[in-house]
Simulated scan of single mutants.
Amino acid sequence: MSPDKLDTYRSKRDAARTPEPVPEPGPLPTGHNDTFVIQEHHARRLHWDLRLERDGVLVSWAIPKCLPLDRKTNHLAVHTEDHPLEYATFEGEIAQGEYGGGLMLIWDRGTYETEKWTDREVKFVLHGSRSSGRYVLFPTDGKNWMIHRMDPPPENGLPPAAELRPMAAEERKRLPRDQEAYGFEFDLGGTRALAILGEGKVRFIGADGTPLTPESTPGLDRLDGLGKAAWGLPAVLDGRIADIGGSTVYMISDVLRLNTGDLLGRSYRDRRRTLDHLSLRDRHWQPTPWFPGDGKAVLQVAKDQGLPAVLAKRLDSPYLPGVRSSAWLRVPLNPGG
């Protein structure tokens, strides 16, 4: 009797403890070998899982830096266990302590075409909304494979990052009543700025779309290294350039794009969790702390520290560039603050 392709998958999961699909042993479903999914996996380290339908299962690779954008760079792809076809639609929270514990979000899904499939080489063409083009996977050492883009990258169809503008909050005199629906942040003052990361460099754009320079923004030159953060992936961040203890620090509050993927439609909660997993932490840049549902405590700390305001952001709110929205609220702590 031939082994079940999902035996390894089942052996690593307890159906009573995980929301993941865990089908019973039996005949595998018959498909068209043309479905793919890429899932953003907030496990111990943020990574992306590429899964290709093949003979009743999803053959899977974990890719720490997501798909390469051009032909110049290969990315590591770690071959993992086959997953059931039902996993192509799975999003959810895998409990900490369980295998793969953490948030799983669909990054992209669609169809693909197989050009070649052997033990030494898998060539395919993706047709997704975020991911498209010809790729090849090839093994290098045991479970370690590499993934290479074979054709020039297409236009991603997104407006230039420099045309994005920060989302703004409406002012209120007090915290919202339904605090459990919000995440709370400290308003640390300083200069609101979007950071555009790419090719190892960083550009800063002010709230009005004006490029920021060291001449216009003291201490900006200390933030040059941010361009090499986020594992070198292209990204657009939102935050404030503030003076923290006499040092210039870019306090990052949001991530709008990552590796050409537009995250604007995601909820604030999910964007913040993605940001936290990017491990953007240095003495000159770090994520702004956020506290789901804990507005009163945040307000008291802000008062004790003499901060200008507290921000309340709905956990389910998308990012609306250039819009002043009631989904985000700013509560000043002193007149004119």
Rank of each mutant, 00 (worst) to 15 (best):
R17H: 14
P29L: 07
P29H: 04
G31D: 11
H32V: 10
T35A: 10
T35P: 01
H41V: 11
L46A: 07
L46H: 02
L50T: 05
R54G: 00
W61L: 06
W61D: 00
P64Q: 09
L67Q: 05
P68H: 05
L76K: 09
H83I: 01
L85T: 13
E86Q: 15
Y87Q: 01
F90R: 06
F90P: 13
E98C: 11
G101H: 12
L105P: 03
L105H: 07
W107T: 03
T114P: 00
T118N: 04
E121T: 11
K123Y: 00
K123I: 01
G133W: 00
P139Q: 12
P139S: 09
D141Y: 10
N144R: 13
M146W: 12
D151T: 15
N156V: 09
A169P: 08
K173R: 14
R174D: 15
P176T: 05
F186H: 09
L188P: 02
G190M: 08
T191I: 13
R192P: 07
A193S: 10
L194D: 04
L197I: 03
E199G: 06
G200I: 05
T213K: 04
T217L: 02
D224Q: 14
P234D: 00
P234L: 02
V236L: 07
G239A: 07
I241R: 09
A242K: 11
M251H: 15
D254T: 02
N259S: 10
G261S: 15
L264V: 05
R266Y: 10
R273N: 00
L278Y: 03
S279I: 07
D282K: 12
R283V: 07
Q286A: 09
P287Y: 06
D294V: 05
V298Y: 10
K303L: 11
S317C: 06
L320S: 11
P321Q: 09
G322W: 12
V323Y: 10
L333N: 12
N334I: 07
G336I: 07
G337N: 12
